[in-house]
């Protein structure tokens, strides 16, 4: 699969009146990988998603979803793209099974094929017991599962997931992560937006950062990522740890010691040194996830 199978966005712009919801978006999401879409509220993530989902036309720029243009040929995109919106809507009088069957039929499946696919998806997202009850009785998390199943009805090669984890309990989040990874392993392109950065960190391979309507350029990202990071260290004996860390600029918080390091290489050296010094280390990890650190650094610079 080459890049034309994923999502390619260049120079996309969209305003509503005087509001520039998306000013300049450019990124690539590749097949077989999970790409995170990260940005603060109002950064234009949902507007961008709507343009990718063929619902909104960009004012300028080009979009390719699995090789097709959503403006010129929305039908071709819709046949290959699944979208899970941030708004959780469901036909309240219909059962989950009927919802999925009808969605399948709207994707030009035959009745038996749609019914079969609905059964598969109900098992896949674990709605088994509730499948034949009206969707109005579903909880938020259960509606979330239904929404994901609906996005998968026509077995799309590109998936757009807008806040898929919100409302899910911890167990369901783990299940979602496993499912997302499996969908990517099957060669699909996934674009996932979420506010829960730790969650994204665990499922995404790549990240696209959005700020005030624009995606953050690659060189700026590299620069931000290259800065000194903080590692969290804990040991059985705090005094031995403090002695070994003397002169490294370490600080302390309620969970242990925070040590600035330049990169992962330096972190590995630090761990080797601590172990060699006889410190019995119990925890050694980045203090914040990669996404969170980049996100916070970008936000901090933007507010300056």
């Amino acid at each position: 699969m080459d890049d034309s199978d994923g999502i390619v966005v260049t120079g996309v712009r969209r305003s509503f009146g005087r509001t520039h919801a998306v000013a300049d978006a450019a990124f690539t999401a590749r097949p077989g990988r999970v790409t995170a879409l990260i940005g603060p509220n109002g950064a234009g993530k949902t507007t961008l998603m709507l343009m990718l989902a063929t619902l909104l036309a960009p004012d300028a720029g080009t979009i390719r979803i699995a090789g097709a243009d959503p403006v010129a040929d929305p039908g071709a995109v819709r046949a290959r793209m699944g979208w899970m919106p941030d708004v959780l809507g469901s036909w309240s009088s219909l059962t989950s099974r009927t919802t999925l069957e009808l969605t399948g039929r709207l994707h030009r499946m035959s009745k038996p094929a749609a019914a079969g696919r609905a059964g598969e998806l109900i098992d896949l997202v674990g709605l088994g017991d509730l499948a034949d009850r009206p969707t109005r009785v579903l909880s938020r998390g259960q509606k979330q599962r239904l929404s994901l199943a609906r996005a998968l009805v026509h077995d799309p090669s590109v998936l757009l997931l807008d806040e898929p984890a919100s409302g899910l309990d911890p167990e369901a989040r783990v299940e979602l992560r496993v499912l997302v990874r499996r969908l990517a392993a099957e060669g699909r392109t996934l674009l996932v937006s979420s506010h829960v950065l730790a969650e994204l960190e665990e499922m995404a391979d790549d990240a696209v950062y959005m700020q005030a309507g624009s995606t953050v350029a690659a060189d700026r990202l590299a620069e931000v990522r290259g800065r000194t990071r903080t590692w969290r260290v804990r040991a059985v004996d705090d005094r031995a740890l403090d002695a070994a860390l003397a002169g490294s600029g370490a600080t302390a918080d309620h969970q242990g010691r925070l040590v600035p390091v330049v990169d992962e290489e330096a972190a590995a050296d630090l761990l080797a040194r601590l172990v060699a010094a006889g410190v019995r280390v119990t925890a050694f990890a980045p203090a914040a996830g990669e996404f969170e650190r980049t996100f916070l650094t970008l936000a901090e610079e933007a507010s300056r």
């Binding site: 094929a113 598969e120 077995d155 090669s157 979602l176």
Partner: peptide
């Protein structure tokens, strides 16, 4: 979200619905 494997592992596979 149970551990069941997708019935159609290949996104461009032959089991894809006709459209």
């Amino acid at each position: 979200m149970t551990g069941t494997v997708l019935q159609d592992p290949a996104p461009n596979g032959s089991a894809r619905p006709e459209r």
